[in-house]
Nucleic acid binder design. Structure first.
Length: 157
DNA sequence: GCCAACGTTGGC
DNA sequence: GCCAACGTTGGC
C-alpha cells in the first residue's frame, strides 16, 4: 500500500465537501495531466491513503486524510460535453483519463500549512516543496507520511 | 490579480 | 522531432 498527496481547490471541492458526500465517498475526476493519470492508472490502489491538500486558497496546505476505495476506472467527465473536463479527443474504446474513488477519513484540527511543511528540513522529496511543481497527484514516502502526520499533531485513529 | 514555471499544442 | 507560442497552475 502506498501514500499520496491529492491537490484540490477547496472553493471547488475541499475536504468538507468530501465529508458531506453520501457514504463520504466521491470520484476523484478531472485529472488532465499524463503523469498524474499514470499514477491513477498504474499505482494508486484501493487501500492507499492520501493527504487531502488545499491549493489556491487562504490557508494552503494539508487539510486531512482520505482513503482510496476504488482502483482506477475511466473518468466519466471526459465523455460529458457539459463538463468542464470534457475531452473530445478521448473515446470510450480507449479512455484517456482515469478516476479513482476516495473516501473521507479525517479532517485535521488545523491545516498543516505549506509554510510549515517547507520549514522542515527533513521534507525534501515531497513534490509540493519543490519549485515549480505542477502535479495534482504525487507520491509521498512512508517516512514523510509519518513525519507530516506528526507535524500536524494527528494520527490515523 | 500578478507572474513565474510548467505542460501542451501545432507549424514547420 | 524541434521549439515558440500559448494556456494553466498555484503561491504570494
Amino acid at each position: 500500500m502506498n501514500y499520496w498527496l491529492f491537490k484540490s481547490e477547496p472553493d471547488v471541492f475541499g475536504i468538507d465537501h468530501l465529508a458531506k458526500r453520501p457514504n463520504q465517498t466521491e470520484p476523484w475526476d478531472g485529472v488532465r495531466n499524463y503523469q498524474a493519470r499514470n499514477f491513477l492508472r498504474d499505482e494508486i490502489k484501493a487501500g492507499d491513503l492520501l493527504f487531502f491538500y488545499h491549493s489556491s486558497c487562504k490557508v494552503v496546505g494539508i487539510a486531512g486524510i482520505a482513503e482510496v476505495v476504488k482502483d482506477g476506472y475511466p473518468d466519466a467527465s471526459q465523455f460529458n460535453p457539459e463538463s468542464n473536463y470534457f475531452d473530445p479527443k478521448s473515446n470510450p474504446e480507449s479512455p484517456r483519463w482515469i478516476s479513482v474513488d476516495v473516501k473521507f477519513r479525517k479532517k485535521f484540527k488545523h491545516v498543516l500549512s505549506l509554510q510549515e511543511i517547507k520549514s522542515n528540513p527533513a521534507i525534501t522529496e515531497l513534490g509540493i516543496v519543490k519549485k515549480g511543481h505542477r502535479l495534482s497527484i504525487m507520491p509521498v514516502t512512508e517516512k514523510e507520511w509519518s513525519l507530516l502526520l506528526e507535524m500536524a499533531g494527528e494520527n490515523l485513529g
